[in-house]
């Protein structure tokens, strides 16, 4: 019971990962081909039915899991790769050199991923890649802020003081002492950012600004399902459910990790 949040989150993520891994090698039917009658109800042989084009919805959901994880992994790790070193640098450096990246992150924090993605889509044409780029860029400030705040805390610890006084150069202090100590906090941030990235990607492909028609994503499936809300509303069920499961998985994982790190905060959330 104590770690219920964590385990529930992990199992939801596990489900999505399982679908995605299976989807790399095999889907029951081609996710983009017409394989049955149009708008079939859930049943056999099409577990979740078919869409308005006659494609197998279950296969499309599996394929969407692959894309969602790809977008999440690429955009979050891209953001961490830029944001974490910048944040650590900003936390270790005194004076304006440390102040400027922190202030820049403050300014860019809250620049919505969707608006950036819309800008990119207008300038370059929308694709999964422009979506990932936009989500990644707008996630960077969050990593800078959290890495800087955590670094500032670590820097006041005795062992860091000792390392610095004994002449250890800054880069190795950063790698040997700061990074391992702020890693848990970064893990929480990564999990939370992953959930946000999934929602952002879903919104983008719902608007038709993310993936192309040849890559069925959950958001795009919802866009198509909306044409049938009068006759076949069940079409709008599965993709949204998938988005909610994946997002909740990462949200719960983030919460669970935070509880592990700081049990005192448990009550507060």
């Amino acid at each position: 019971m104590k770690r219920a949040t964590l385990y529930l989150g992990l199992s939801l993520i596990g489900l999505v990962v399982l679908l995605a891994v299976v989807g790399i090698f095999w889907t029951p039917y081609s996710p983009t081909a017409m394989v049955g009658p149009r708008l079939a109800r859930p049943g056999w042989p099409h577990l979740l039915g078919t869409d308005g084009f006659g494609a197998d919805i279950f296969s499309r959901i599996i394929n969407g899991a692959k894309i969602v994880l790809l977008v999440g992994i690429v955009s979050v790790s891209g953001a961490a790769l830029v944001g974490v070193p910048t944040g650590i640098f900003a936390g270790m450096k005194r004076g304006w050199a440390g102040e400027i990246p922190a202030r820049l992150a403050d300014i860019l924090y809250g620049f919505p991923a969707l608006l950036l993605a819309i800008l990119f889509a207008a300038a370059l044409g929308g694709s999964t890649w422009t979506a990932m780029l936009a989500i990644s860029i707008s996630t960077v400030p969050a990593f800078v802020r959290i890495a800087r705040a955590a670094t500032l805390q670590v820097m006041s610890q005795g062992y860091v003081e000792a390392a610095r006084l004994s002449g250890t150069p800054s880069p190795s202090v950063a790698v040997r002492h700061v990074l391992p100590n702020i890693a848990p906090v970064l893990g929480v941030q990564a999990s939370v950012s992953f959930g946000i990235a999934i929602l952002a990607e879903a919104g983008l492909s719902y608007l038709g600004l993310g993936s192309r028609a040849s890559e069925p994503t959950w958001g795009r499936m919802l866009r198509e399902a909306q044409d049938y809300i009068f006759s076949e509303p069940i079409q709008a069920l599965w993709p949204g459910l998938a988005i909610a499961v994946a997002t909740m998985g990462f949200n719960l994982l983030g919460d669970g990790l935070r509880d592990l790190l700081d049990p005192r905060l448990r009550e507060l959330r």
């Binding site: 909306q226 909610a244 909740m248 719960l252 919460d255």
Partner: peptide
Amino acid sequence: QVGLAIPAFWAGIW
């Protein structure tokens, strides 16, 4: 927690 994970547009469709 459920409300956090649901895309607003999906809620809208329903």
